[in-house]
Design a protein around this nucleic acid. Structure first.
Lengths: 208, 208
DNA sequence: TTATAAACATTCATGAATGTATGTAAATAA
DNA sequence: TTATTTACATACATTCATGAATGTTTATAA
């Protein structure tokens, strides 16, 4: 059983990535040996080394699989011109992010690996930068949208758009980390959507 | 040169802990061998094994050294009855936390290790719980203080104390993580105190 | 004063993970 | 049809970290 067809080879590549995710999640990245991953994928280390140069490359592939489409989905809301109140775009975008996180165990596993099962040193320092960039981008994007809201007069008077953006930025990051690091504690996940609504409500025009 | 006096032994114990912090910070916990740590401390592995059972116990000792006094310091502000506006107590407590983080490189290193240089699996899953508990406690405490503010009428009308507490909770966590994971990016540290002030201002009574 | 134990250093055996080198059977191009 | 790759499996050499065992010196208690 060697020399599979191209599609079969692509299939085993994907299975290796999936197995890597499971093993990374269970053992942590540094304790995940390529032997364990190979066994979990039903292949030998030879197959892993055929498809990936080393553990780091496998890690990057696993991450890329999940990250890019997620950013695309949330940006669709954030940059959409369909909302007449820009604040709704921000709220929809953040809600969408956490909805995906709740619905997709794959996405959740990858985030849990990146947040609490990986050490960002050596070959992995670059990962931290790659994670930092979307975060920086997110700040820039919501600042722009908050500015639109200010122009249209839907942002509560007295709130600076940049200030609002930074606060929302921290809020989102914190919610993500709290959700994934103490997940079973005080079933936070049920309260996520309410927290987002409350957070945004504080910067909307006060209801008469 | 063996069989030191008790004080000297205690000194080497501390030096091992300090060395561990430096090596953990540079190499990540899993790649930090006891040999590296010993060498950095100017001793051999024998000394490390004499003072600590294994790497995990050394990690716990390093963490405990820094954590307990920090919680005590921030709680002093949070639970102080000296502020006539409870919101000032919350703001002072959070400000104090980030001030220590800025001033003490030791504290900062330990937090950086725990956030981005340690994998919470195996013997280290309990660490995550130990980190989660102060976070949970913090939520409970600020909820109580927000409730006091509501009673005294200093909390902006229309804001529920529990909602405010959860939002501040996420904000604080997010700020911490953003600060430590993308530290050099966009010199966030300069903006921390302003961000805290803005965050709290949004829940104060609007200035006439 | 001496016996004991503290505070390490040194040595050793073991296992585990990595990377590479080589083997091999089937797909595919010619 | 045959030659050549492809897509792996298997085997091997090397390095490295760990834990335990043992050695050594000196503080300290009796």
């Amino acid at each position: 059983m060697v020399r599979k067809t191209k599609e079969e080879a692509e299939q085993t590549r994907k299975e290796i990535i999936h197995a890597a995710r499971r093993v990374f999640h269970e053992c942590g990245v540094s304790r995940s040996t390529l032997e364990k991953i190979a066994k979990a994928a039903g292949v030998t280390r030879g197959a892993v080394y055929w498809h990936f140069q080393d553990k780091a490359e496998l890690f990057f592939a696993m991450r890329e699989d999940v990250f890019a489409p997620l950013v695309e989905r949330t940006d669709a809301y954030l940059l959409s011109e369909c909302f007449d109140n820009p604040l709704d775009a921000i709220e929809a975008s953040i809600s969408e992010f956490f909805r995906v996180l709740e619905d997709s165990s794959v996405v959740r596993e990858v985030f849990e690996i990146m947040i609490s099962r990986c050490e960002y040193v050596g070959e992995f320092t670059s990962v931290e930068e790659e994670i930092g960039r979307p975060a920086q981008d997110f700040l820039a994007k919501i600042e722009r949208v908050y500015r639109q809201a200010a122009e249209r007069g839907t942002l509560r008077p007295g709130i600076d758009p940049l200030d609002a953006a930074r606060d929302t930025w921290a809020f989102t990051s914190g919610l993500l980390h709290l959700l994934l690091s103490c997940q079973r504690a005080s079933d936070l996940s049920q309260k996520v959507s309410a927290m987002i609504r409350v957070h945004m409500a504080m910067r909307r025009i006060a209801p008469a």
